[in-house]
Nucleic acid binder design. Structure first.
Length: 1093
RNA sequence: GGGCCAGUAGCUCAGUUGGUUAGAGCGUCCGCCUGAUAAGCGGGAGGUCAGAGGUUCAACUCCUCUUUGGCCCA
């Protein structure tokens, strides 16, 4: 107990923390916490599953620390938290990693390698760095149950996912549609958006303006042609419509005897200058529904959307007025185009197929022509037929295959969707109930995304993922089923075997006759797997194999009170969790109707989303503000940083570095500063306490004096820590840990260490009497007791080590309750004392001003001064009196006497300023003039106002009646002494040095040299000494006057011995010191051993 | 191309519902302290709050545009 720890911590935080970690593992802190909170209310936390096929970086430390801190805080609030780890194991990133490993690339090569072996590789790959993740997480103190994690590729997990998909199907929300996807014709493979993102190259394409003559158009439009622009002439054979913006005003332009319709601002780009004129205008919405003459006549191709309309003008606000003509040629190769075709019933036919080659002859261009090679001949044909108005070259950025650099083609492919739009309103409404931190993510980013919700494209044409459990009748594509469980599958297909693994390719081989009555045909599974975001979004249920098992447990652990992930999860996990939960609990009425499932009770899950609050973490950039990436090699390896600084300093540094959601920079120097400045100060404050608790034999069990009997400074620091505790609760509850930490840091460094302890040191060695000493110990103990608990969620290692030393308990701080001033059982119960806190502020300001004056007049603090005057403007409006702290400021500034100035002493130059918030509303536009008038008020008027009188001031035509509260009194200076003011507090120092003061100053100088010599001789603070001095006459006089006092301070029980000539004797060696004013002293000291009784 | 976020001292960041001297730490210069001592503290200097326009008696704060950076989606 009371062992000093700061040295050990500061020199090797890594070793220090590892010892704490070892203790946690010995005592199984996770298990202990669970037992301690066994009957407590649950606080539900969901761990967002990381993928362990890459190394964890420092940014993962940020996310995990945020999660851990909030959970530790809640545990200290008395809550029970399950902390189940999870692993995300499916998906394209895993496949890409394995492709790299095997040096293969693309679907054909994977198929050649074999699906079974490939998926086995994926399964192995996802846990490549599992151990590294676990080690790191444990080392940074992230408490999580790694023994029983949920794993998305587990058989049970997949079965739960199947069940959920079957629920979507049962509600008619699963359907087969088409999705426009990027495709590489050469590799024969679709690409993910992630892959597209890394393959943009600049290429030259023809830029063409095409005319679309309207058929049977009314009025001024008769005989006119629309003009559209494109850089992909190869898409023109598939033209199915022209899209206009409903709100644009299009110009009707006469040129060369013909009339065209397009935006006036774009006409010059087509027709040049001067040769055209505007003859009318038409609004986009009026063009909708008109038809035009097709560009090409040809047969064949692949129909991707049957429709009743051909070559028609459609209206949509995706059209922009920046490029082109304000009119867009529509072909089924664009996502917007295809969406509108489906919406408006346009017939969509592809001219180019799977290998990006022409499927049918068009305008003499041969079947099999690669899509980009068709650009020129098609353009030539259009030109000959007068449909091409202009052609030029256009350089732009275009997506290419990242493997082979072939330009990509986009077209619609079959895909399975979840009809999330069916319950969009419920998702939007549910989102409003989520407490987002920061709030703008919920209203803005996530809210916008939900408002614009489109159906979830669920399927992926890939290999390693949860197989889509849809089986289709090979004879009738309308006859399909979504399987809800392995048992159901076995019912259709027979026994699945002991070690059934639902992954591809095993599951692909399962087929069976259609169970649909009256139909024939074999059911085969569709080839797709599902989006791995569905996997992770299903985790609230699938992690417990719901509803096959754990129905009660899931009902209790749903929804989450809290989740926390990075900003990049908005459209990822945040969405998939929300969508699945909203559907299941609010849309799937038939599931809950009977209260039973398969004949057994199914506890109702609380209707709503999957989480009640969400803390969004920002991105972590390197110290230059650049995103960390493997490519740039600026990744910070967490292990190295931890070895250097320890986990606590990093945890504090990352969490305090700014509002959680902002991207911020990781700066090694910043972490080092936190370690020294904040954590070091906390440890040193404890050390100070421990040092004197030991030397003075203070007993933790001794009764502590009642608060009323302690000094104002004691009650002040208790009040401060109690209000920090109250603020911290607010900050944590609103998910703003950085705010909690800012308050805590100011408290630890400024208030506790630099003010309370500094000003109270003497009391601890009994220099101010027994009662004062007892009060000081009691107070500092209570404050440390509280501060450590406040900091425990953030810096679990240091606080636990100090806690056990401080309290002498072997019970971890993480089993304690968070400080609560409202709880009578808490050590800081009802400690908040507003008046006492308010009264300290002017004291701190006065002390700062006093130091500034001393600095200016070059009189060191060691030199006592006779008097200081303090004037506090509006002192009577303070809720407490600063005069309670007179002793503190007298000692701090080393002055003999404080004079509290009241009223209107002549030496104060004062000025009134308007109280803007009060007067602004009343005065309005007169405010400026009124302000000037107030500034010009004379001294007597200002003090009359202060005294409660009313004063009329006229400005322009108005007369304003001012009262005391309408002005703010400011002090400008104090005449006749060395003074300083900050406007509210003014101090003046009497700097005249009398012989007495000089003598005492010299005595303090001598004492300083004695103390320095003590320290440099390696003495302990409680060692007694013999002291012999010699020196000038002034020195001798100072010792004669103050020797007894000096002797007491430097622990020389026999007093100071004076010799005229310093000569070495026995253990005494003289050292010569320079003193101010070219005075000199020689001092010799030696330790004396006190006889013990 | 769309949505969201950010730009405040050399650096890292605070800044309440708009209110008139914009704060802290680090760094730098100067000084102090010594019964927490391989520490600690204070005082200076340093800012046209990214730029422009607008609303207002009053804008770092609200609105618009521009610009730079970031994230997500196309």
């Amino acid at each position: 107990m009371f062992e000093p720890r700061s040295r050990a911590y500061l020199t090797d935080p890594n070793a220090f923390e590892k010892a704490v970690l070892a203790a946690w593992e010995r005592s199984d802190i996770l298990q202990q916490t669970a037992e301690a909170r066994h009957d407590a209310d649950p606080f539900v936390f969901y761990e967002g599953p990381p993928t362990a096929n890459g190394r964890p970086g420092i940014h993962h430390v940020l996310a995990r620390t945020l999660k851990d801190s909030v959970c530790r805080y809640q545990t200290m609030r008395g809550k029970r938290i399950e902390r189940k780890a999870g692993w995300d194991t499916h998906g394209l990133p895993v496949e890409l990693e394995v492709e790299k490993q095997l040096a293969i690339s693309g679907k054909p090569e994977i198929e050649k390698y074999g699906l079974g072996p490939f998926n086995q590789k994926c399964r192995d790959s996802v846990f490549t760095y599992k151990e590294e993740w676990e080690t790191l997480s444990k080392r940074i103190g992230y408490l999580l149950d790694y023994e029983k994690p949920y794993v998305t590729f587990d058989k049970d997990y997949i079965e739960s996912v199947w069940f959920l998909l079957a629920r979507f199907a049962a509600n008619d929300l699963l359907y087969l549609g088409s999705k426009v996807l990027p495709w590489c014709g050469r590799c024969g493979t679709g690409l993910s958006s992630h892959e597209v993102g890394q393959g943009y190259l600049d290429i030259d394409d023809p830029s063409v303006w095409i005319s679309f003559p309207l058929i049977a158009a009314p009025g001024a439009l008769a005989g006119a042609a629309l003009v559209a622009w494109t850089t992909t002439p190869w898409t023109l054979p598939s033209n199915m419509g022209v899209c206009v913006h409903p709100d644009f005003e299009y110009a009707i332009i006469a040129h060369d005897g013909k009339r065209y319709i397009l935006l006036e601002s774009k006409a010059a780009a087509v027709f040049g200058d001067g040769s055209w004129e505007v003859v009318g205008s038409v609004k986009g919405s009026e063009l909708g529904g008109l038809c035009y003459t097709p560009l090409f006549t040809w047969q064949g191709g692949r129909v991707v959307h049957e429709g009743t309309h051909h070559h028609m003008v459609v209206v949509d606000d995706f059209v922009s007025d920046e490029e082109g003509t304000g009119m867009v040629h529509m072909a089924p190769y664009g996502a917007d185009d295809f969406r509108i075709a489906q919406r408006d019933g346009l017939r969509a036919v592809l001219a180019f197929g799977d290998e990006a080659r022409l499927l049918a002859e068009v305008a003499g261009v041969a079947v099999g022509t690669f899509f980009r090679d068709a650009n020129k001949p098609l353009a030539r044909d259009l030109k000959e037929r007068g449909r091409l108005l202009k052609i030029s070259q256009y350089r732009h950025s275009y997506p290419h295959c990242w493997r082979c650099e072939t330009p990509l083609i986009y077209y619609p492919s079959p895909a399975w969707f979840l009809r999330t739009t069916a319950f969009k309103d419920k998702m939007v409404a549910g989102n409003k109930k989520i407490r987002w931190a920061p709030a703008e993510i919920g209203a803005g980013r996530f809210g916008e995304w939900l408002e614009n919700n489109i159906d979830w494209a669920l399927s992926r044409d890939r290999f390693w993922g949860t197989p889509l459990p849809v089986w289709v009748n090979q004879e009738d594509p309308e006859d399909w089923i979504c399987v809800e469980s392995f048992a159901q599958l076995a019912l259709y297909a027979g026994d699945l075997g002991e070690n059934f693994d639902p992954h591809r390719p095993v599951v692909d081989e399962i087929c069976f006759p259609t169970p649909t009555p009256g139909k024939t045909g074999i059911m085969r599974r569709v080839p797709q797997v599902i989006d791995c975001w569905f996997d992770s979004g299903a985790m609230p249920l699938a992690q417990h194999h719901w509803p096959f098992e754990n129905r009660e447990r899931v009902a209790e652990q749903f929804p989450a009170n809290f989740i926390c992930e990075g900003l990049d999860q908005t459209r990822g996990w945040f969405y998939s969790l929300h969508a699945i939960a909203t559907f299941l609990t609010q849309y799937d009425a038939s599931l809950w109707e009977s209260g039973k499932l398969w004949g057994e009770n199914l506890p109702r899950l609380k209707p709503g989303g999957a989480y009640a609050s969400c803390l969004v973490g920002g991105l972590l950039l390197d110290k230059n503000g650049v995103k960390m990436s493997k490519r740039l090699g600026n990744i910070v390896r967490p292990a190295e940083a931890i070895e250097e600084h320890g986990a606590d300093a990093i945890r504090w540094g990352l969490l305090a570095g700014g509002a959680a959601h902002l991207s911020r920079r990781y700066d090694d120097k910043g972490i080092a500063e936190v370690r020294r400045r904040v954590l070091g100060t906390l440890a040193a404050s404890y050390d100070f306490f421990a040092l004197y608790a030991r030397t003075e034999d203070w007993d933790v069990r001794a009764p502590r004096p009642p608060r009323q009997q302690r000094e104002p400074l004691d009650r002040w620091i208790l009040s401060q820590v109690a209000s920090v505790a109250a603020d911290n609760v607010v900050a944590w509850e609103s998910l703003q840990p950085a705010n909690a930490m800012r308050a805590l840091e100011t408290f630890i460094v400024d208030e506790l260490s630099n003010w309370y302890i500094r000003r109270s040191r003497r009391r601890f060695w009994g220099a101010e009497g027994v009662a004062s000493q007892a009060a000081a110990f009691a107070t500092l103990y209570e404050v440390l007791h509280t501060t450590l608990r406040l900091a425990a969620p953030i810096i679990p290692f240091l606080t636990d080590a100090l806690w056990q030393e401080l309290t002498g308990s072997t019970e971890s701080i993480h089993l304690q309750l968070f400080p609560d001033a409202n709880n009578p059982a808490d050590l800081i119960a009802v400690a908040i004392d507003e008046p006492l806190s308010a009264a300290m502020a002017p004291i701190l300001r006065a002390s700062s001003l006093g130091r500034a004056v001393r600095e200016r007049v070059q009189i060191r603090v060691r030199q006592p001064l006779s008097k200081m005057v303090i004037h506090i403007a509006n002192e009577d409006q303070l809720s407490g009196s600063p005069r309670a702290y007179e002793a503190a400021i007298r000692e701090e500034l080393n002055v003999k006497e404080i004079e509290w100035v009241e009223g209107t002493p002549d030496f104060l130059q004062v000025k009134a300023k308007p109280n803007f918030p009060r007067l602004g509303k009343r005065a309005g536009s007169d405010m400026k003039a009124l302000g000037a008038a107030i500034g010009a008020l004379d001294r007597a008027t200002v003090f009359a106002l202060q005294g409660g009188a009313s004063v009329a001031v006229s400005v322009g035509d108005h007369v304003y009646t001012l009262e005391g509260e309408d002005i703010i009194l400011q002090t400008e200076s104090a005449a006749g002494m060395e003074a300083a003011t900050d406007g509210l507090v003014t101090i003046g120092l009497v700097t005249e040095l009398t012989p007495e003061l000089l003598c005492e100053g010299l005595a303090r100088e001598i004492m300083n040299r004695l103390q320095t010599q003590r320290k440099e001789s390696g003495l302990e603070v409680q060692d007694r000494i013999e002291a012999v001095l010699s020196g000038d006459a002034a020195v001798q006089a100072a010792i004669a006057e103050h020797g007894a006092w000096i002797a007491e301070e430097v622990l020389a029980p026999h007093g100071l011995r004076w010799v005229d000539t310093p000569r070495a004797e026995n253990n005494l060696e003289f050292r010569s010191w320079e003193l101010p004013n070219e005075q000199r002293a020689s001092i010799a000291i030696s330790k004396i051993v006190l006889e013990t009784a």
